[in-house]
Simulated scan of single mutants.
Amino acid sequence: MTEDERILIPAGIMRRTEENVNINNKVKMAFGSKNVIGYNDYKGTAFVVEGKARFFDSGAEFDMMKGKFSFVTRVFRNNSYNG
């Protein structure tokens, strides 16, 4: 996640998702983590994030992700919003 609350996901495949985002860029994603204490002190919880998304294959953010993940051909970016 970036400082301005954008989520960047390295995309090596995700072709069908990219096709869908090109038609309708509103997305809802669920993320899970076992490192966060959940309901009734269970280990793990999930988060749902809504926003608008796009794929891109150039620019500073792409270069940064490519440096971390050599398989990246595109980056999936979600701009979170409430509602």
Rank of each mutant, 00 (worst) to 15 (best):
M29G: 05
G83K: 09
N24H: 07
G59S: 05
E3M: 10
Y81V: 03
K68P: 00
K66F: 02
M64A: 11
G51W: 03
T2D: 08
R74A: 03
N24I: 07
T17N: 08
M64E: 06
M65G: 00
N25P: 07
G44H: 02
K28G: 11
N25G: 05
A11E: 02
E18A: 12
D41G: 12
Y39W: 12
A30E: 15
G12N: 07
Y39N: 13
V48K: 10
I37G: 08
N79L: 04
G67L: 08
V72K: 01
R16G: 09
I7R: 01
A53Y: 00
D41E: 15
N20A: 13
T73H: 10
N82K: 13
V27F: 07
N24K: 11
N78W: 04
N40Q: 15
K26P: 00
F71E: 12
S33K: 09
R54M: 06
K26F: 12
F55C: 03
G12V: 05
N79C: 04
E19K: 15
M64R: 09
T45P: 00
E5W: 06
I13T: 14
N40M: 14
F31A: 06
T73W: 06
A46I: 11
V36G: 09
Y42H: 13
R54N: 09
A53M: 02
Y81S: 09
T2P: 02
K43H: 09
T2E: 08
K52R: 14
K28E: 13
M29R: 03
M29I: 11
I7V: 10
V49Y: 05
A53R: 00
R15S: 10
V49T: 02
M14D: 12
R6E: 09
I9R: 03
Y39V: 11
N79P: 00
S70Y: 13
D63W: 05
M1P: 06
G83C: 03
K66T: 00
N24R: 10
T2Q: 07
I13Q: 13
F71H: 13
Y81L: 08
F69Y: 15
M64D: 07
D41K: 15
D4R: 01
K34A: 14
R74L: 02
F47P: 00
T2H: 04
R77L: 05
K52S: 10
G51M: 04
V36N: 08
M29C: 12
A11S: 08
N22K: 13
G38A: 03
G32F: 12
V72E: 00
M29V: 11
T45W: 03
T73C: 11
F62A: 00
E19T: 11
K52D: 06
F69E: 05
N25I: 05
R54I: 00
K43V: 07
G12D: 06
K68N: 10
M64N: 08
R77Y: 01
A30P: 03
M14Y: 11
N40Y: 15
V21T: 02
K26G: 04
I37E: 12
A30S: 15
M1S: 13
K43N: 09
A30T: 15
S70W: 10
Y39F: 14
T2A: 07
F69D: 05
G51E: 04
E50T: 08
I7K: 01
S58Y: 06
F71Y: 14
K34R: 14
E3R: 11
S33T: 13
G32S: 14
